[in-house]
Design a protein around this nucleic acid. Sequence first.
RNA 1: GGACCGGUAGCUCAGCUGGAUAGAGCAGCUGCCUUCUAAGCAGCAGGUCAUUGGUUCGAAUCCAAUCCGGUUCACCA
Length: 633
Amino acid sequence: MSVVLQIKAATAKAIEQLYGVNLAPETVLVNATKTEFEGDYTIVLFAFVKQLKKSPDALGEELGSFLVKEQPHLFSGYNVIKGFLNLVLSDDFCSAFVSGQYQNPKFGFAEEGQEKVMVEYSSPNTNKPLHLGHLRNNFLGWSIAEILKHTGHEIVKTCIVNDRGIHICKSMIAWQRYANGATPESTGIKGDHFVGDYYVKFENELKAQAEPIIDAAVAGDFSSFEAKDLPKLTALQKVYTTEKDGPKKEAAIKAYEEIRELARNATPVMKEAQHMLLQWEKGDETVISLWQRMNSWVYAGFDETYQKIGSDFDKVYYESNTYLLGKDLVEEGLAKHVFFQKEDGSVWIDLTADGLDEKIVRRKDGTSVYITQDIGLAEQKQKEFNAAQSIYVVGDEQNYHFKVLKLICQKLGLPSADGIFHLSYGMVELPSGKMKSREGTVVDADDLVADMIAIARQKTEELGKVKDFTETELQELYEIIGIGALKFFLLRVDPKKKMIFNPEESIEFNGFTGPFIQYTHARIKSILRKQEQITDLAGTANLPLLPLERTLAIELEQFPAILEEAAREHDPSKVAIYVFNVSKTFSSFYAEHSIANAESEAKKQFRLQLAALTAQVIKTAMHVLGIRVPERM
RNA sequence: GGACCGGUAGCUCAGCUGGAUAGAGCAGCUGCCUUCUAAGCAGCAGGUCAUUGGUUCGAAUCCAAUCCGGUUCACCA
C-alpha cells in the first residue's frame, strides 16, 4: 500500500479512536508538503473542523501527536501551521523502502488478473504515408496499452487498416495513368511514400480538371454536370453571385465550396475513380489484383516505420473485410425498435433525447455507412476477444462519432457497449496552424524520425563521450536518443490537449526531454558499473538521511501510484512528468553528494541502493512510454 | 444556431475531485568541470491564472454570463 493510502487510513483510524467519528479514508485530503515547510506529507484539516467541533490547531496537535505515537515506524515528527498538519516520514521508513525494493525488477507493477482491455490505435489509410499526427496516435496507443499491462490488465492491441474506398482508388488511377509500370523496387522509393506520391498526382490532376468546371459553373454554365445536379447548382450559383460582395459573404463562400465539391465529382478522373470503386466492389479481377499489389507496397513501407517506432499489434483488422459488418445489426435494431425507417427506405436512429441528432445507419440504397461498420466491428471484436473494455485511440475531431457509436451499441444491447472508451487526443499543429497537405506543411513521420536520429548523432559526436562504441552500437544509441526525444516530446503533454510542434526549433535534448532522463539513467549505470556488488548491510537501517536522499526515496515510493493514476486517466503524460521529476531530483542529489566517496561505508551502500532503484524506476517508466534507456551516452 | 473542448510567465506546458506565497522546461542574465558523465547543478529575473460576477473560512480549480480560439452537427470515411 502506498504511503499516501497508509496516511489516509491511519488518519481515519486516529479520528475514530480520538473522537469516535467514522470517516472514509478517501475523504482525508493528503498533499505533498510545500517545500518551504518542514514535512513530507500534509493533511488538510479544514474539512473535519466543523464535524469534530475542534479548532484546526487543536485538531492538528492532537492528531499529529497521536499519529507519531501510534505509528513510530512511519512518522518521526509533525508540525501544525494554520490548519495544515505536516507529517515527517521517518528515515527508517524511507531507507527500509529503498532496501526492500532496489532489487525488485517488478517494482511499480500491479498484480496481474485485472480485466481484459482492447486498445485500437494507429489505424492508417493505405493511400498515404504516416505523418506527425499518426506518431502521436501510435505513441499514445502503445503507451496506454503498456501502462495498462503494468497495472495488471491483459491487453490486446489492434489496428484497423483503412485499405479500401475512393481514396485508395485515386492512387490506383494515378498509378495506371502515370507510372508506366514503375514500382517501389524499380524506383527505390519506400512503398507507402511511392503510393502516396500517386495520390498527390491524382489530386493535382483532379484540381486541374475541376478548375475550368468551377469557373464555368460560377458563370452559370453547367454543361459539365449531370442533370440531377442542375437544380442544386442553379440555387448555389445564385447565392454565390448575389452574396459574394454582399453582407452574407459567408453564405457565398459556402456556396462556392459546394459548387467546387460538385465540380470535383464531375471531372473525368473522379468518375474514373468512382467507376473503379464499383469495379472493386464487384470483385473485378484486374482491379483487385492492382489493389492488392499497391497495398502490399504500402504495407512493406508501414512495417518498416512501425518497426522503427516500435508499434506492434496482436490483431490487425482490414476494412476490406469488415466494411460489410453491421448489416445484421441494422435488422436487429429495426426489430427492437431502436432504429426506424423513413419513407425512402433509409434507416435512422433518433438520439435527440440524448442531446444529439438523428443519425443514419443505412442508406436508402441499402448500403451501410461508416458508423454501421464500426458497430459491426465492435460486435466482432467482442465475439473474438470478449474484452471488458475497448479503448479507441482516435483524434478529438471524432468525439461526436464515438459518443454516437457508444450510445447506439448501448441501445442495441451489445455486451461490449459500456466498455467502449474513446481515448480522444488533440491534433498536433504547427505554429502556423493545422498541417495541410495542400500547402505541403504535413510533417512526414519517416522524415521526422530520420531527422531526430541525425540530430542525436550530431549532438553525441559533439560531446564525444562514446568514442569507443562500434558503428553498430553508435547507430543503436542514436536511435535510442533520437526516437526517445521524439516520443517524450509527444507524450509529455496531456493527450486531450492539442499541441504545437515547431519544425523550426528542433526538438530539445536539454531540460524536460527524453534525452535528459536517458542521461540520468546512463550516469547512474556508470556509477553502478564501477562498484563491486551492492551488499545489503544491515547498517543501512539506522542511518540518518539527508534531505535530498529523503526526497528521492519518497518520490520513488510514489511510482506505483503514478502508474495507477496514468492508467485510470488514460494519460501517459502523468508518467512522463513523474519520471522527469525523479531525474531532476536525482541530478540534484548527484551534484551535491558523492556516492562512491560517501561519508561512510553504510552511507555508500545506501546511496548505491537508492541510485539502483532510481535507475530501475527510470527504466520502467520510460519503458511504458515506449522509450529505451541507454547504459552509456 | 446546437453540442463539446480549450484560454496559466516572451514561448511550450504542469497544476483543475476547491487548500499554504501558482510550478517546470526553453529563451535571457550570474556562477560552477584537478573528485562518480557539464545532454548536468546552483541562482536571478519573468504572472491581472481571458474578463466580470457568484458560491465559501478559502477559487487558477466549482457555478453563471461575456470575449477569443478550435472541433463537430454528411445518405464522406
